[in-house]
Design a protein around this nucleic acid. Structure first.
Length: 552
RNA sequence: GUGCUCGUAGUCGAGUGGAUAAGACGUCGGUCUCCGACACCGAAGAGCGCGGGUUCAAAUCCCGCCGAGCACACCA
């Protein structure tokens, strides 16, 4: 149990006692006791605004409520409790509480940062889900970084999580891919062609075609066009999937499930439509079948089956989300590009009409990424002639910088990615700064080891009582709470910021507190603190998918 | 036009109702006989687009206006 929870429990007991005494009169449901680390050190180690929040409920002034609570707390946790401002309660912990807590963390070792399991519901996170018709570009990269970090963070927070990639391997996009590759195939084998007008122009299509030719030669050249397009389409699909998986793997992204849209055609789509037909969720008009989504918050109704009898993308998506709900997840999280936000209403409407709780479906939007080099926006890839492919970014700045930069801003704000900064080896570059702090700690361990200084038995943490030491200790205490919040808010940037702060707090410690050359017990205590610090940096970077090198 | 998102120092940005609005870049001024200067310390600089409202308390909630982005396909 964290100190925070212990304090909250103390407050609850005191409130109950005050109510039993008649000092506080209950008139409504009480809010949770929210404890926070105050903005200023003078306000104690923890603070709560509980008395202010309950002023109305108890019909008493916040300060009086705080007094009643305070007088009924008897605990050896606190050195003192103060009532400040409009009714804040500030808790000052006894130092030995801090040292005891630190020892608990020290004893937890590698497990610090892994929170207790939160029960048996599983949360599904679907992300990236790029069409297998081209290379991953930097926008997908942001989604990949965010999605995998959210998965890591939620797992650390104790949730069961399953990650999924939805492969759009049916429909028009695949036809376009097949036709494009067919044209390149004929072209590379010396024929005159008219490249399809709406085909994929990118150089990667030519690469794909070359690979197909090198494996299969020209044996499809004399097939009837329809047949050839079909075969080449399948070969291209397989090739594209392989490339895509390669890029994701290099970027440190893994999926538990790869879900093919094809498995929905036609049975699962028809089944979903049948349900909607039976309950009036769809109707026919102008030869097409429409979803009555405007009944449930959408601007207008949407076509699910076209005049020509083909299902729309929405039809497949309805079947897909129905399938997700049927799999029994406690929560469904989708990461979508912000340009899809108009899509939420119709999918949620469809889920409601199918009888599911649409609130279980959470959509996280990723705003655009813009790359900047020397202050200029970089829009297109010279080589590929398309949006900048992920692999080009990774080649230029490396995986660590790419991942951290993608994660340091909230997903719903636009991201300006400074390529020069990402590559720079200086404290201006946050990734570099954090990794440097880690490497510096490792260097200290190398030196102390050489000097014969090791931790044996339980360190005497109570020897550390300077500001820099206490600051670092307190910063480490915040970590589990940061994970909890980052998971609840789906906010990897919270961890990105935390680990930066931690590195900065460590730097102050490093400046003020030497290890070599001080009295042995103190040196050992500090060394133990650094061991925890090193582990915490490593753990937090791990959640972000960034490495923690021992030397740089 | 309609809908969604957003608007915080010169710049980038934290902040999901509470105590004097983080931090970084840039600017200015300092620091290597010292476990990594690939680093560190200090200073100046905003009252949160504008105007109303709710609240004991608003950058945070509500309304209006202004400005930006995105979306408004029988494409995915």
């Amino acid at each position: 149990m964290q100190v925070k929870d212990k304090i909250a429990a103390q407050i609850k007991l005191a409130v109950e006692a005050a109510m039993n005494d008649g000092a506080l009169k209950f008139s409504d449901a009480l809010p949770e006791v929210a404890l926070e680390v105050p903005p200023k050190k003078e306000f104690g180690d923890f603070a709560t605004n509980f008395a202010m929040q309950t002023a109305k409920i108890f019909r008493a002034s916040p300060r009086k409520i705080a007094e009643e609570i305070k007088s009924r707390i008897s605990s050896d946790l606190f050195e003192r409790i103060e009532i400040a401002g409009a009714g804040f309660m500030n808790f000052y912990l006894r130092n030995d509480v801090i040292y005891r807590e630190l020892k608990t963390i020290y004893d937890a070792g590698e497990n610090f940062g892994n929170l207790p399991n939160k029960g048996n519901v599983t949360i599904q996170i679907e992300y990236v889900s790029a069409n297998p018709t081209g290379l991953l570009h930097v926008g997908h990269g942001r989604g990949a970084a965010a999605g995998s970090a959210i998965v890591n963070i939620m797992r650390a927070a104790g949730y069961n999580v399953e990650s999924e990639y939805y492969i759009n391997d049916a429909g028009n996009q695949m036809d376009k891919l097949a036709k494009s590759v067919n044209a390149r195939y004929l072209e590379l084998l010396g024929q005159e062609i008219n490249f399809p007008e709406d085909g994929y122009q990118g150089a990667d299509i030519i690469d794909t075609t070359r690979r197909i030719i090198s494996r299969h030669g020209d044996k499809y050249l004399n097939l009837p066009a329809d047949e050839r397009i079909k075969i080449l389409g399948e070969l291209a699909y397989a090739d594209k999937m392989l490339e895509l998986q390669k890029d994701l793997e290099n970027f440190g992204v893994e999926f538990d499930v790869w879900f093919s849209e094809r498995t929905l055609h036609p049975d699962k789509i028809n089944a979903a439509i049948e349900v909607l037909k039976s309950n009036g969720g769809v109707y026919e008009q102008d030869g097409a079948l429409w979803l009555a989504s405007s009944k449930y918050g959408d601007d207008k109704d949407r076509v699910v089956i076209r005049e020509n009898g083909e299902p729309t993308y929405l039809a497949a998506d309805i079947a897909y989300h129905k399938n997700k709900f049927e799999r029994g997840f406690g929560e469904l999280i989708n990461l979508w590009g912000a340009d899809h936000h108009g899509y939420v209403a119709r999918v949620k409407a469809a889920m409601t009409m199918l009888g599911y709780d649409a609130d279980k479906l959470k959509i996280i939007f990723l705003q655009m990424v813009s790359l900047f080099r020397s202050g200029e926006a970089v829009k297109m890839s010279k080589r590929a002639g398309t949006a900048i492919p992920m692999r080009e970014l990774m080649e230029e700045v490396g995986t660590d910088a790419a991942r951290y930069f993608f994660l340091m801003r909230s997903t719903d704000s636009q991201l300006d990615f400074d390529l020069d900064l990402a590559k720079s080896q200086s404290a201006d570059n946050p990734v570099y700064y954090i990794q440097y702090a880690h490497a510096r700690i490792c260097s200290i361990f190398r030196q102390t080891k050489e000097a014969g200084l090791t931790i044996e038995g339980a360190p005497n943490f109570s020897l550390m009582n300077s500001t820099s030491e206490i600051d670092l200790i307190n910063k480490i205490f915040e970590y589990p709470d940061e994970i909890e919040k980052a998971a609840a808010e789906y906010s990897p940037q919270r961890i990105a910021r935390y680990v930066y702060d931690l590195a900065s707090t460590f730097s102050a410690f490093y400046r003020d507190c030497r290890i070599l050359g001080v009295e042995k017990d103190l040196a050992v205590a500090r060394l133990a603190l650094l061991k925890i610090t090193k582990h915490t940096i490593e753990h937090a970077l791990g959640l972000l998918g960034v490495s923690a090198p021992e030397r740089m």
